[in-house]
Amino acid sequence: MEIPSISGLYELVIAATAESESVLIQYWQQFGFTVGESGTLNAKGANQLYGINSGLRSLRLYNQVTDRSLLRLMIWEKAINEGLGLTPLKAVGSRWGTSLSLDVFNIANHAEDAIAAGLPVYYVPPQRNLINRSESFEPFIQANPCVHEMVLIQPLTRQVLFERHDYTIPNSGIVNQDSHFKGSEFVHVGLIVECEHEKLDFYDQVLGLHRAVNNCESKYDEASRRILELKGPENGEQMLNYYFTAPLPSTTEQPKIRSGNIEVFRFEGSLPNKLSYSRPGCLGVCLYTMKVRHIESYHQRVSSSEATEVTQVYENEFGEKSFSFVAPDGYFWTLLE
């Protein structure tokens, strides 16, 4: 069986200050994450790999799954800016993690109480999306597959949370039942781009990800409009959807849906550009990483592509071979082995 050489999402990375570190750890523990290994880089090493002339200490957090969909906290001695902050999802440079919860309405209650207390929160209440419902659906008789999906943005965190009803996907959203909010790993992460369609070829043709959804016009149902604040095509706004997953092993078995995917929304129109607030050194959600085999081969492929700011291969704060680059769509990435 051929083993895929790239993981899909390995880590969602959040940068924080030393003062906010303990609060942030406590927050993610409520969603089921546990602190694992730690590591450091001096200013020279951080500048070589991430382009930031500052000392760095990082923590890696896990939630049930240990080979993908992890969370890394970067603690910089000197951050370069405040990051995305309370910017809504619909902005170029916007990043977020999407997770399953068995208790979305409890999270919503906390969000509403936080807003009432004057805390900085951007919040979209749970919206219901139907899943392949037939026109002949009979309430109380047939299964009613749907999700309730909500947005929760705080100065250092950007989350979409959803709860499934009447259906399950075993390898996509493995919930930590002992956590307060009964949360899972990141099922997928999101990107908002405003670039030519061809720029996104980089993700499958260079990195080798599998393109599961390609240039698909997204449906403008009420839930989608609320979550992403869509105006709709009648106002000249078009949104297209792409979905990238890790390549599957060469096998005759039925492929399994799993977490760690990358969802890209491409807008045709003018959006706020926040890319300079969405890269290492910025506070909050600032980076995604992917794990690869034969990193030198990947470095050669990326260096020969339209990617820019390609670093050499260095050891990261965990002692892993790594290199960074800016993809043709403008997003900063790090690959590690």
Rank of each mutant, 00 (worst) to 15 (best):
Q177A: 11
E112Q: 14
L24R: 07
N176W: 00
F323D: 00
L230A: 09
V104M: 08
G93P: 00
V213F: 10
Q238F: 14
S297Y: 03
F202L: 06
H197E: 14
K291V: 00
Y314Q: 10
G55W: 07
I80S: 07
P249F: 03
Q48L: 14
K321L: 07
N316Q: 07
L59P: 00
Q127V: 09
P247R: 04
G118M: 09
E217D: 13
C286T: 06
V151L: 06
I3E: 13
A111Y: 01
E138L: 11
A327F: 00
E237T: 05
S179E: 06
N42D: 15
N144F: 10
H188D: 13
E19L: 12
Y331Q: 09
D204F: 04
L152K: 01
L56A: 06
L161C: 11
A111M: 12
N215K: 06
K321M: 11
T289L: 03
V175E: 04
K321V: 00
R266A: 08
L59R: 00
E82V: 06
E37K: 14
P88A: 01
I227T: 08
D329P: 04
H294E: 13
Y123L: 02
T157R: 12
E138Y: 11
L119Q: 15
S278Q: 01
K44M: 10
S259M: 07
S20K: 11
A307V: 02
I169W: 03
G319N: 11
K182R: 15
E138F: 03
P328I: 02
L156Q: 07
V175F: 03
A327I: 08
M239H: 01
Q64C: 06
N47R: 14
T17Y: 09
E234V: 14
L61R: 08
